[in-house]
Amino acid sequence: MSLDDFFHDETFFGDYTFKNSPRAIKRFPFPFPEDDYMYSVNMEPHVPGRPGSVFEHTFDVDEHYVAEMRDRARVLRDDPLRCQSLPHMTLAGWDLLELIMESFARDYPQWFSLTKSGNQWHWINRPLNIDQKFTFLDESTLPCGPMEYITRQAQGDFTLQDQRNDNLWIEAGMVTTQADWSLDFDIGMSFHEWHAPVPKAHEMGVFDRALKFLLQLQHGAPVRRFNWTMTVDPLLDTSPENYPKWGPGKTTLTKENIGQRQHLRVELQTLFRLPRSNAIAFPIRCYLCSFEDLVTQPKWARRLHRVVRDLPDELATYKGFIRNRPLMVDYLSQFDDGAPTSPGWWPDE
């Protein structure tokens, strides 16, 4: 299969030509293991999963890779503040570059290669047509800082957290596919500070437990969890900065178009301890799937209906879909016959 056959030529903006293939629908990381949802720390070891699933490799490179990287470049052209790194975070950026290059080259040798001779590295990224020789740990040999360089070539947002004073500090990031939070505002904050706007979870102790857990995170033992929200149209850049541009789209959903335009937005969040800097890398990978594609899996259709219908108002408000919830429940109810669903989130075979 040639590169052009695998990677879609599509957009996440304007005419929104993004589309999941039948294979991508089948492997969509549906985030609800049960028929209801409430916050939890829900972390598990990030170990290789089923072949073909989004967990098969350390980083999932899928059919949307090339188009997502084009979209990232577009967002950065419009707003360079989406990528920032405080001066002391450069070493963590190199750690991240190494992690991604080694993982990509190991897991996708048909697309990426990395050869090393001491600190002289040679990186080839065939899908994006990049051939780069550089000196590891020498910033002057790359066209931009190491975090920016590698995250322009990797799907998902990335933040880097420094660890000191028994806390984590968000001090670098590449954030162009975010669910309504601002790196430019949050950079420099401690763990509880940057989570301040999340309702309920503080009182439940979720962040205290999560921080305690993450401070102990070991190199070589990454973990993962899901998060989710809803997005109208396959727009990756749902930033607060651009909310006046994308917010109005939420008001144009109808019974007729909701199946195509309403998307479940799932974040596969992974956490890696980095070896030199002792920082934590936090990739936040966004997957989108339209309601009409989701309901092709009967189990997901039933369960999504129940989760959306029963979610507390406070969470539906925070996740930004309270105004369209009645329309969503109405649409999804057509596909819920009340039958029980099997445990876990894999689609029924």
Partner: peptide
């Protein structure tokens, strides 16, 4: 209700 010490400011949203 979100405050940045770096900016010494709360966040305003449309």
């Amino acid at each position: 209700d979100h405050y940045s010490r770096r900016l010494a400011a709360f966040q305003g949203v449309n």
